[in-house]
Computed example of a mutant assay.
Amino acid sequence: MALNFDVNIESESEEDPFEDGNTVKNIQEHFRHEFTQVHQEATSLKRKYITHAANSNDFSKISIGIGNEMQVYDVTESGLNKYVGKNEFGQFEHPVSGLKFFHDDPNIVFASTSAGEIHMYDLRSFSRIHTFEDDSELIVKPVNCFDVNANDRLLCAGSDELNHNVYLMFFDIRERRFMGGYFESHQEEVTDVKFHPTDPDTLCSGSTDGLINIFDCKKEKEEDALQFSLNTEDSIAKLQWHYHDKLSCITNTNELLLYDANEHDLLKKWNRSSITEAIKRKSVIDCNLIDCYNYGTDEMLLLATSNYNKGECIRSVTFSENTLDPVGNFSGNSQIIRASLYNAKENLFFTFGEGAIISLWKESESAATNMNVSLKEDSSVKKKLKKKSNPY
C-alpha cells in the first residue's frame, strides 16, 4: 500500500519540552549527500511500531517485526510486494524479538519471539520448517536477540534474565538440534549477538551488564571459548563488526564506542553531546542513535536521528578512530525511527518506525521530484534495485 507523503503520521511519544533545531543555516554545506523518500509502505492500519528489520544478503527481500507479526517483502522494480502466506504465516502469540535471513539463500528467514522460540521459514512454500528452542531445563528461555553464522550452520540466541541467569544458546541449523550454551559470561540480559562476517566461529555478545564478550565457538567449554571481555561501563544496545576487525557499540545511553577486536583496545568514544554536535542539532536529549554500517570501501557509517517533532531529522556521519564527519541529510521524515537497513552497494536506506511505515531513501540527484511518485515510475531506482549487493 503506497502512501501520499502529506499524510500526518502520529507518534505516541511525549511532547519534548525542549525545542530542537539546526545549529547551522545551510545544511547542504555540511551534509554533501541529500536523501529523499522515493517510496513509503504502510504495514498496519493499527497503532503499532516496527521494532525489528532484516534484509537478505542480495537485498531482494526484507522482513520486519511489528508487534506479534513478521512481515516479508520482495524488493522489486515497482516497489515492495508483501508475502501473503497461509496458515497464519508470520503470526505469533508473543512479540517479535529478532529477524535474520540465511546468507546464501534469501528464501530462508528466521524470526524469534520473546517466548523463547526461533521460527525458521521457507518463503517458497510459506511453510515453517522448524522451531528452535532450549527447554533443556524444563523451562523456556526468553530470546532477546539471535544471529546466524557466516556458513549458515550455527545459530546463537541471547536470552533475557531468567531466575537470575542469562544464556547464550547454540543450535545446529542443519541437524535441527540444541547444542548447548554459555551461561556464565553475562550477568544481565543479552541485548545483541553478532557472528563475525567472515569467520563462522567468532561471536561477539553484548549485555546490559556493560560487557562485550568475544567467543571462539569451536571450543565446547565456556571458559575456553571466552577469548576476552571489553567493559563499556554502560548498557549495550547494538553491536556491529566492521573492516579490519573493528567493532562498534551503541549504548542505551546513546553513546558510540569503537574497538579494535584484535588488540582489545578502545579506539574512540563519542558521547551523546558530541554526536548531537556532529549532526548539527541543538537538543542532546532528542538525539537517538539508530545503527552502524560499513560504508564505501573502508569506512564506517552511523545513522542518527532527532526525535523532536515526530522524528523529522535523520542524518548520517562517518566515523573513524579520530573523527565524526557529516555525510547525509534525509529530508521529509515524519515518524520516529526504530530500525534501519542499508544497502551499501546501491547507497539505499530503509527506515522503519513508530508510524508503522517502511520508507525507502535514495540520493536526491536522481530521485523523483514528485514526492508522490512510486518506484514503478522511477526508472533510476529500477536500475539500481536490479543489482546485487553484499552488506559486508
Rank of each mutant, 00 (worst) to 15 (best):
V7T: 05
N8V: 06
S11D: 06
E14Y: 15
E14K: 10
E15I: 13
D16H: 07
F18T: 06
D20C: 07
D20T: 13
G21Y: 09
K25E: 15
I27M: 15
F31A: 00
H33A: 05
F35H: 10
T36N: 13
Q37C: 13
Q37I: 08
H39A: 15
E41Q: 06
A42M: 11
T43I: 13
K48N: 10
H52E: 01
H52G: 02
N57P: 00
F59N: 00
S60W: 15
K61F: 15
K61I: 03
I62D: 00
S63N: 01
I66C: 11
G67V: 03
M70D: 10
Q71N: 11
Q71E: 11
D74T: 14
D74H: 14
D74M: 07
S78D: 14
G79L: 05
G79H: 12
N81T: 12
N87E: 09
N87H: 00
E88W: 05
F89W: 13
F89N: 13
F92A: 03
E93M: 06
H94V: 12
V96M: 04
L99M: 09
K100V: 02
F101G: 08
D104W: 01
P106Q: 07
P106C: 08
S112A: 12
S112W: 03
T113F: 01
G116P: 06
I118S: 08
Y121K: 00
D122E: 09
R124L: 11
F126S: 12
S127H: 05
R128K: 11
R128L: 09
T131A: 06
T131H: 04
D134H: 05
D134F: 01
D135T: 10
E137M: 11
E137I: 11
I139F: 13
I139C: 03
P142Q: 01
P142E: 03
V143D: 00
F146G: 09
